[in-house]
Amino acid sequence: MSVVVRTIARLLLPWVLAFGGYVIMHGHLTPGGGFQGGAVVASAVALVVIAFGAEGLKGQKNLFSFLEDLGAIAFVALAFLGIGSTFFRNVLAGGGGLFGTPVPFGPNPGWLNTGGTLPLMNWAVGLKVLAGLGSVVLLLALFGGKEDG
């Protein structure tokens, strides 16, 4: 792409990544969550592919594969935490400790240390979605041409 596109992409990339991280991290407090934040970060991957070409990201396929596996395993492991009573039981909520501050009913300013397993699951699903959609974009850009095959 032209130098204008490359410069704007270089300027915009940290902000897109930071916004995606914010959407994932505050998924239990504000609109958003793992899926949406992962899609935002995957759009950053698409931006890099459009501006700089897909060849530079060719070595990152193993990273995407690792992140996808990590997200899936973390998600199922967090679900298995509650196997004493039910699969997917929220064992950390309301018990103090990590993400365990009890929340009273009603509107509040939002505390980050709440939600039990929900923020951790947000991170797991966010990693999974960003790796999945990013690798789909990367594969379509790398091998979607006419000449391969």
């Binding site: 998924g27 239990h28 407090l29 504000t30 609109p31 969550g33 929220n90 909520a93 309301g94 993400f99 365990g100 501050t101 009890p102 929340v103 009273p104 009913f105 009603g106 509040n108 939002g110 709440t114 939600g115 039990g116 929900l118 947000n122």
Partner: peptide, 12 residues
């Protein structure tokens, strides 16, 4: 809010 501890009901 009380059971799952999250403000975002859709996430819970």
């Amino acid at each position: 809010q009380v059971e799952a501890g999250a403000n975002n009901v859709v996430t819970s």
